[in-house]
Design a protein around this nucleic acid. Structure first.
Lengths: 237, 237
DNA sequence: TGCGCTTTGTTCGATGCCCAACAGACCGGA
DNA sequence: TCCGGTCTGTTGGGCATCGAACAAAGCGCA
């Protein structure tokens, strides 16, 4: 039943046969509904999410209701790794950015599996490192780059996560993730549209010119990709 | 010989007797010289640093030579935890912000110890989480808060790390960490000086009014402290 | 087909920060 | 005591983004 989830999620895919067998009996399917909050900052993480499609953002809530994104994962990763490696308390909020399905494993099962397998722990830890990479690259990017560069970076990353040129997102939502005004996004987006890099209408953004977008993005996009390749490109220790 | 290092560094302090004994034979002392680079992004981490005093910044290098800080640790933490938990490759650059001493453990010894002790792994992992907390809070902060708020937050954090109101730092250096112009720091700093929150001269900043600084800082400072307290306040699993 | 809500577009003044250049002050070393 | 380099102060123009308010258009739903 969950063999197909293994081929859909990169984390499950990367596991050795024996590590996968530790988790397989405990895998369940859940729907990721848009805007659903999977866990809260300081709250308990009750399960680990292995998205099969869609996207999950990890965000920092700020006083005043604003939130800013620190990183995102889709089928290229997992969400909730700390539940397996430590206590099950979240240091951020997880929000469904684009609806989809995920395979999940309850916290008790994943902790028990992690206790048994060092290679599973390493695999989990790599995705935690990958979130750190995103968060710190965002910190640098948000401090120094323009809204246009940051928007391009973010669209490119979303495209990679969703593995589709078609991004079901509103400008309002994007603005929140970037920590800028919605009108700034509208302004920049219309420039990108005019340059034929993207097109969009009411909650649907579509990437038209991948190379062009990359040229307009800051180095942060490539920086993340190269770190991702390095981290996942080999199994460690 | 290294019993005193145990009392000086909070990580070593927090370890159980048996975990500490795993590391004790391998502890060595090193000097942390100002501006020394302990490891590079993508480079090997050859040892874990447990500062006894001074401060180490974890930074993201950007093309063009700029760097932006993602987090910092002093005797309140450790630097290089990933070396023990995964392959020994760094996802960021570690730079000595304020000179001092550190106890260090070579990568082979720490990996071997981590393989033997789950509680040691958990302890190491907590400091990795703490870096994530700093990085993602910085991402949010850099996106939405003013230079004044960010400077105050940063000074407060430095003060906590150094456990001193006296911060041996130049405005140029601070500006780099925050990802802003040096002249912006000068401008804001002189306002803080006028308000009698700080005083300074050529590379020496001194906190005069702690409460006042906290009032001028954004919520991000308190947000980090509360997460730190939560993460370290109890031993997990 | 039409209504209403959501999303996007546009204006415009305000402002915070950039950017570059230079002046002045401090401090250590000769 | 003077000199040179590092650090801080100051200027002023320019631009990106904010902030708030309102207009227009698209889409779902009845």
């Amino acid at each position: 039943m969950h063999q197909n989830s293994r081929s859909a999620n990169r984390f499950l895919q990367s596991l050795s046969h024996s590590d996968f067998e530790l988790l397989a009996p405990h895998l369940r399917s859940v729907e990721l509904r848009h805007a659903a909050v999977l866990f809260e900052t300081g709250g308990e993480i009750d399960r680990i999410y292995c998205p099969l499609n869609g996207a999950i953002s990890l965000v920092v809530p700020l006083g005043g209701g604003d939130i800013v994104e620190a990183g995102m994962f889709g089928r290229d990763g997992i969400v909730g790794a700390p539940a397996a490696l430590d206590s099950a308390t979240a240091v951020n909020q997880a929000v469904v950015q684009v609806q989809g399905q995920a395979s999940v494993v309850g916290v008790a099962a994943i902790q028990s599996a992690a206790r048994q397998s060092a290679s599973l722990r390493t695999a989990l830890y790599q995705y935690d490192q990958l979130l750190l990479v995103q968060a710190q690259q965002s910190a640098a990017c948000n401090a120094t780059h323009t809204v246009e560069e940051r928007l391009c970076r973010w669209l490119l990353r979303s495209r990679d996560v969703l593995e589709s040129d078609f991004l079901p997102l509103t400008q309002e939502f994007v603005a929140q993730m970037l920590g800028v005004r919605r009108t700034s996004v509208t302004l920049v987006a219309s420039r990108l549209k005019e340059a034929k890099l993207i097109k969009y209408r009411r909650g649907r953004i579509e990437v038209l010119d991948l190379e062009g977008l990359q040229d307009s993005a800051c180095e942060c996009y490539r920086a993340f990709k190269s770190q991702e390749a390095r981290l996942l490109g080999r199994t460690a220790v």
